[in-house]
Write a protein that binds this DNA or RNA. Structure first.
Length: 927
RNA sequence: AGGCGCGUAGCUCAGUUGGUUAGAGCGCUACCUUGACAUGGUAGAGGUCACCAGUUCGACCCUGGUCGUGCCUACCA
């Protein structure tokens, strides 16, 4: 074995074998366990959030597989309508072509080609993470099977009246030329203006203060061109006399009424609001209440159309804004301009300002679907982890709005609806199906709806469509409902909620019984990772490493804002002057687990990854030690506890406890606690103590060959079990070492991933062995403390006396002399009678037991005095707080008896210890 | 405006029904290349648990408030 662990070769090697041999497919007859992957976009590249979530899903999958469950981690990708279409369009643009030039059919063909060539980048990256996904069942949301489920669902919802077509205001993206849903709109506060315009009153009307005009305030001057009313609050005395009167709409040669509506807040602006039903969601509602005309003034590009006065036609909305303001100013109707912060809605894909726009779209009526979905969470059929996300879910679901599902794109599931020349709608699987269903002659002209469905429509069906519902139900029947969904809070509404609704509706089952919501992965300063901040980390770079130049190039390529490139390059150079070392998949995964406490975002700390890389190396070297001492040596293949030493029994007991902790933590999704337990056990107990304790036994194997044989077995056995305990979290190193260790124990099995997970049984628990070894460790640490503090050279062998202990202490000394001598580097260690005088010594206490290291020629008396003084100080402050407690009558009266008793014992111990050290200190002085 | 989090060692984080001398990793200090490992070993330093009040015999933990900070949802023309 190499002296250090080299992850890269091992990772490729084992993943390939696992996949080729079909180990990821469900096997056996255990109770099924299933996770479906949140399908990554085909355009996607693996980011830290993916890395984190897949690490968790893989741990759950491998854990349950090893627990004997028949386990499936269902894989697949999402066609990601807008994102993918944009990628291919950009590519066409570079080639001097365009989507429109190609035409629909050729364009869609082009996207498929792109998908075949480039769409597997992310699936390769998932493999690098070690994900035990069943690739033989890989699905794509636009596969024939999944597409037919989409159609079926659409048609049935339509027939039930739960899908309908309607003309309404939608969120319109003027760049992408498509409607998007409310969720795809991101509103950010931006600096803008509030323009105050005067609208002249007609028929000699005046305001209460005598003006011949009303002043309205607006953030969108250009929409003036589509105004059809001015609204005031009905209770606003300033304007009540004007209700029902008319104003002359400036620039437009139209008169519009003044109406009263509760929507108007008299406190804001002037208390007068211009109403543009075609271009504002609130105004649209007001317009409906008052039966106002709806005048659309925009083209699909958000340029002014012919419904507006001539001078503005054809202008872009922002040009038009400028021109309207200028014209109003020239007309003397601009009162003032104020700075104003406002929320600007932008499309999450295009970044473009979204327009409310009146179009025909398809909607899902969700209220009826939401009710059972709410109940499923209320009654515990579905449980969120952590629980508080249920509140977020309920809040949204109880006020859910109809879902706009049509998109004016070409890439996606085309809406299965056809129109005749009169505009009547026919819904069916295909044109032929429609003709049969509705008994339409072949000559009857039909035209299919041009739109496609929102990508999230097919995602909502993901758990059951991937498992073969409704035709090939074998997997569906076995694995549905799935066990847990692992995802980020950002798509609870987009995806989780819609899955719950659709799955309940069509299968009558919940899609999953648990929803584990992960935190967001942020950078080490708690900043969100983003391209524009230049703090993106690619999980693969952390695995394989990357040079500074390459990393900088990566971070500054394809920038939306190229001017940031220099700043990002500088920042990158500061953060990673040497680039990034490769740490291997196992170390990266372990970092994710260690930071994954529930309900909290994680700040990704590369220092921890480095620490876990070191941990990998520690495991590697412990294995080297074990192999070196077992290969070609004599050892037993089984041993009962009677033939074991106390240290053998101790490490097995500690292992049993650790296993229990791991199981416990896994049921609570506390991956951080899992890694903590394993790390602590393996490094601080197995390596630091058991391996060290094994040395005196193995090196004296001629004196006691039987003991050495048992110790070799225990070394091997605990290592082998630890590897299995570790495997779900560090799949590669555990496999690599297990392949070498398992044969020595005559363990059969082709892979650790198919081996069984250690049981949480308590049969190995051995409290007395644990107590004995605690004593042993305490005494050794006491001696080492003196050695360290007194600066005694590590090589110098010491003479040590023990004194004043109990009979147990005495027995333990006899039983453990070999260990003490070796681990504390002693020349001798002897029991000293209470009555005999101790030589001048440095002292450590272990309980009442005095550990004495004679000073002669070794120890600086003053240093020992200082050390004792410090120790006494510590004891005193502890004693003070305890005595204070016990001196409090109320404490003694009210606290549970056992607590009081415990404190009393503690007080006594502290007093005795203080007294003992005090005596030692005085003795040093008096000499 | 409403809702949800978070604030513990220099940094990143644990702390599970209120009883610990408040823990880990990294970093730091000193010593050490001892026959698995310097990606290592041994020893050590380092915290008024954001602040204030309350409940309690007892609060990092429960309650109320303050400050700081992050996010989500929702109408402000």
């Amino acid at each position: 074995m190499d002296k250090t662990f080299q992850p890269q070769q091992v990772e490729f090697h084992w993943y390939k074998i696992w996949e080729e041999r079909g180990y990821f497919a469900p096997r056996g007859n255990g109770q099924p366990y299933c996770i479906v992957i949140p399908p990554p976009n085909v355009t996607g590249r693996l980011h830290m959030g993916h890395g984190f979530q897949h690490a968790i899903m893989d741990a759950l999958t491998r854990y349950h597989r090893m627990m004997g469950r028949k386990t499936l981690w269902q894989v697949g990708t999402d066609h990601a309508g807008i994102a993918t279409q944009m990628v291919v369009e950009r590519q066409l643009l570079q080639q001097g072509s365009s989507r429109l030039e190609l035409g629909r059919e050729a364009f869609v063909k082009k996207v498929w080609e792109w998908k075949e060539e480039s769409g597997n980048a992310i699936t390769q990256q998932l493999r690098r993470m070690g994900s035990s996904l069943d690739w033989s069942r890989e699905r794509f949301t636009m596969d024939a099977g999944l597409s037919s489920v989409v159609e079926k669902v659409f048609i049935e919802l339509y027939e039930e009246g739960l899908i309908y077509r309607g003309k309404r205001l939608v969120n319109w993206d003027p760049k992408l030329h498509t409607a998007i849903s409310d969720l795809e709109v991101q509103s950010e506060e931006e600096q803008g203006h509030l323009w105050h315009f005067r609208y002249p009153l007609l028929d000699g009307a005046v305001t209460s203060s005598g003006e011949t005009y009303v002043t309205i305030a607006t953030t969108r001057p250009e929409t003036l061109l589509g105004d059809t009313a001015v609204a005031v609050n009905p209770d606003d005395d300033r304007y009540s006399a004007l209700i029902g009167k008319q104003v002359a709409l400036p620039l437009c040669d139209r008169n519009i009424p003044i109406i009263a509506d509760e929507y108007v807040d008299p406190e804001f602006g002037t208390g007068c609001v211009k109403i543009t039903p075609a271009h504002d969601f609130n105004d649209y509602q007001v317009g409906r209440r008052h039966d106002l005309e709806v005048i659309n003034i925009f083209t699909p590009d958000a340029c002014i159309n012919d419904n507006a006065p001539e001078p503005f036609r054809g202008k872009d909305r922002f040009e038009a804004r400028r021109d309207v303001v200028r014209a109003m100013e020239q007309a003397g109707l601009l009162e003032k301009i104020e700075d104003h912060k406002l929320k600007v809605p932008r499309g999450d894909r295009s970044g473009e300002v979204i327009e409310p726009y009146l179009t025909d779209q398809w909607y899902v009526s969700v209220k009826a679907l939401a009710e059972p979905a709410i109940r499923a969470v209320e009654n515990g059929d579905i449980e969120f982890v952590p629980k508080n996300w249920e509140n977020t879910y309920f809040a949204w679901m109880r006020d859910i709005q109809d879902w706009c599902i049509s998109r004016q794109l070409w890439w996606g599931h085309r809406i299965p609806a056809w129109y005749d020349e009169q505009g009547n709608v026919y819904v069916g699987h295909s044109e032929a199906d429609v003709r049969t269903r509705f008994n339409l002659a072949d000559s009857f002209v039909l035209r299919q709806d041009e739109d496609v469905l929102d990508t999230w429509f097919s995602s909502a069906l993901w758990t059951f469509s991937t498992l073969g519902w409704p035709e090939e139900r074998e997997f569906f029947d076995e694995f549905h409902p799935t066990d847990v969904l692992v995802t980020g809070f950002d798509i609870i509404f987009f995806w989780v909620a819609r899955m719950i609704m659709m799955t309940l509706k069509f299968t009558g089952e919940v899609p999953f019984s648990k929803v584990y919501i992960t935190g967001l992965v942020r950078d080490e300063h708690g900043q969100k990772m983003s391209k524009s901040k230049g703090n993106i980390l690619d999980p693969i770079d952390l695995i394989d490493g990357i040079g500074l130049d390459q990393l900088t190039a990566k971070r500054t390529s394809d920038m939306m804002q190229p001017q940031l490139a220099e700043k990002i390059a500088r920042y990158t150079r500061e953060s990673f002057p040497e680039g990034i070392e490769g740490y291997g998949t196992d170390a990266l995964r372990f970092t994710f687990y260690s930071l994954a406490s529930t309900g909290r975002d994680i700040k990704f700390d590369l220092g921890r990854t480095e620490g876990f890389r070191n941990f990998c190396n520690k495991i590697w070297n412990a294995a080297r030690y074990v192999m070196m001492n077992a290969e070609d040596k004599d050892y037993v293949l089984a041993a009962d506890t009677r033939s074991m030493s106390v240290t053998d029994r101790w490490i097995l007991s500690r292992f049993a406890r650790t296993t229990t902790e791991v199981h416990q933590a896994m049921t609570n999704y506390r991956f951080d606690l899992v890694t903590q337990s394993i790390h602590e056990f393996f490094w601080n107990e197995y390596c630091d103590w058991y391996v060290e304790l094994s040395k005196p036994v193995l090196w004296a194997d001629e004196e006691n060959p039987e003991a050495a044989k048992v110790t070799r077995f225990v070394l091997l056995s605990v290592l082998e079990q630890s590897l299995r305990l570790l495997h779900p979290f560090m799949p590669f190193i555990s496999e690599e070492i297990w392949q070498r260790v398992a044969p020595l124990l005559q363990k059969t099995g082709d892979s650790i991933m198919l081996a069984t997970y250690p049981d949480a049984g308590d049969s190995a628990l051995d409290a007395s062995a644990e107590a004995d070894v605690e004593w042993l460790k305490g005494v050794i640490e006491g001696i080492r403390n003196i050695r360290g503090e007194m600066n005694i050279p590590p090589g110098r062998e010491l003479t040590v006396f023990l004194r004043r202990g109990s009979q147990t202490d005495h027995d333990r000394l006899q039983a453990n002399r070999q260990y003490l001598t070796k681990l504390a580097k002693l020349e001798s260690i002897e029991w000293l009678d209470d009555k005999s005088d101790a030589p001048r010594s440095a002292t450590q206490l272990h309980g009442n037991l005095e550990i004495l290291v004679p000073l002669a020629g070794l120890i600086d008396v003053e240093a020992e005095q200082n050390r004792l003084t410090r120790e006494i100080g510590k004891l005193r402050s502890a004693l003070e707080s305890i005595s204070g407690k016990l001196g409090n009558k109320k404490f003694v009266a009210n606290a549970p008896a056992e607590i009081v008793e415990k404190e009393r014992r503690r007080e006594q111990e502290l007093q005795e210890a203080t007294r003992a050290l005090q005596q030692k200190l005085e003795a040093l002085h008096s000499d």
